[in-house]
Amino acid sequence: MSTQVNVSSSVVEDSRFFDGFTRMMLAVLFFLLLVVFASGKYMSAHKMKGVGTDDNVNNLASVAARTEHHPFIELPGDAELGAFSVANFFCGLIVGYHWLKLFGTKPQNSTKKTADN
């Protein structure tokens, strides 16, 4: 009697804690954070407010329209940070899930017959 046992080299490779993909993503993450941090420090040192251009232009447009602009919902203080964090956390999970499904390493010789005595 024989059984099918999944022996996937890619699964073994993917189970490593610090694989190539993780290293690459961490490198990109740290690079982007470094850019954000350095830009922030520069802007802070030069007393730049760092507001969004969307907000700048919306203010400009409000003056032209003689009205007040307002978002549909205004979140106070750190609640906005919380909303962005929650949204991006789950978006990350969804993107990662589908990325793995679509672009994950294909199993090579995924089945191997072994004798089961």
């Binding site: 850019v35 830009s39 407010k49 969004g52 949204a87 993107v95 589908h98 679509l102």
Partner: peptide
């Protein structure tokens, strides 16, 4: 799944504000 992944990616990318030190403001 492709559409779902790309849709969510557009959501994140278009909400991701980066500071631009040349002008002192942020955009995405």
């Amino acid at each position: 799944p492709f559409l779902a992944m790309v849709g969510v990616a557009v959501f994140v990318i278009s909400a991701m504000h980066f500071p631009v030190p040349v002008t002192g403001s942020c955009s995405h």
